[in-house]
């Protein structure tokens, strides 16, 4: 991944320097030719949507946030009292089920985006509702799981393991909650035609966010739940 990214970037850089060295006064009006957009036109220099650029930047930034929380957990995952560690607490079949629910919601999100792109707002709204519902289900599962852990004696302040576990999954849960609020608000705004700007794009933006929350869970589920089985 990063390999091709580096070669690509270097290639671009070489071209840019070449272009620059050739003649700095050359009248080139094909702005940002290195990644001229699909849409052409000239009201943005790359022909890309501002909002979508912003969303991807935000998601890039979020990688560092979750990376920090995951690293904290990785450092502290073994620091707990004898009988309140992951091996005693995890209920893999249950968490697998809720994970599956969340992954499924990504699929319905894709369907919603594609419906919105076809301007099929009716179906888009239906799929968005299903997505929100599945998200809610996942969240309910997480809350249930937390209460089970709590009843077994694992509080937020019990150990380093518990603090970092609840912080990481809690942050993810908050992201899911925000996603659900965005989905519900979007459904409402679509119904009342109050989306300022483009409907399909709004759906796509929420979709990008939702998928990101989903892929973060893929990592969390693997490195926090499944990995404990190596021992």
């Amino acid at each position: 991944m990063s390999d091709s990214l580096i070669t690509e970037t270097v290639k671009d850089a070489v071209e840019i320097v070449k272009d620059h060295a050739d003649d700095v006064h050359v009248h080139d009006v094909h702005a940002g030719d290195d990644h001229s957009g699909d849409h052409g036109g000239h009201h943005t220099s790359l022909g890309l949507s501002n909002t979508k650029l912003a969303m991807w930047l935000f998601l890039g930034s979020e990688c560092l946030l979750f990376g920090g929380l995951i690293s904290t957990y990785m450092l502290y995952r073994n620091r707990h009292s004898e009988n309140l560690g992951p091996d005693q607490l995890w209920d893999i079949p249950f968490t697998s089920a809720t994970s599956f629910v969340l992954l499924t919601s990504s699929l319905t999100m894709v369907l919603a985006v594609s419906a919105a792109n076809r301007k099929d707002l009716r179906n888009a709204k239906i799929y968005l509702s299903v997505t929100a519902l599945l998200g809610g289900l996942f969240l309910a599962g997480q809350i249930y799981e937390f209460t089970v852990f709590y009843r077994e004696g694992l509080g937020f302040t019990t150990s380093l393991f518990s603090s970092s576990f609840f912080t990481l999954t809690g942050f993810h849960g908050v992201h899911v909650s925000i996603g659900i609020i965005m989905l519900v608000a979007l459904i409402g705004m679509l119904s009342k035609e109050k989306v300022s700007g483009d409907d399909a794009e709004a759906v796509e933006m929420v979709g990008l966010y939702w998928h990101f929350v989903d892929i973060v869970w893929i990592i969390i589920f693997t490195v926090i739940y499944l990995i404990e089985f190596i021992k």
Binding site: S2, L5, T9, L46, G60, E62, S106, H211, D214, I215
Partner: peptide, 28 residues
């Protein structure tokens, strides 16, 4: 990467989106 490439359209979209995201991912 299945989700990123297909669900999030990185594979089909403008390369810049992917690059910005991968910088963050790579740094992390």
């Amino acid at each position: 990467f299945m989700v990123v490439l297909y669900f999030m359209h990185i594979k089909f979209d403008n390369k810049l989106f992917g690059r910005l995201f991968y910088i963050g991912l790579g740094l992390a």
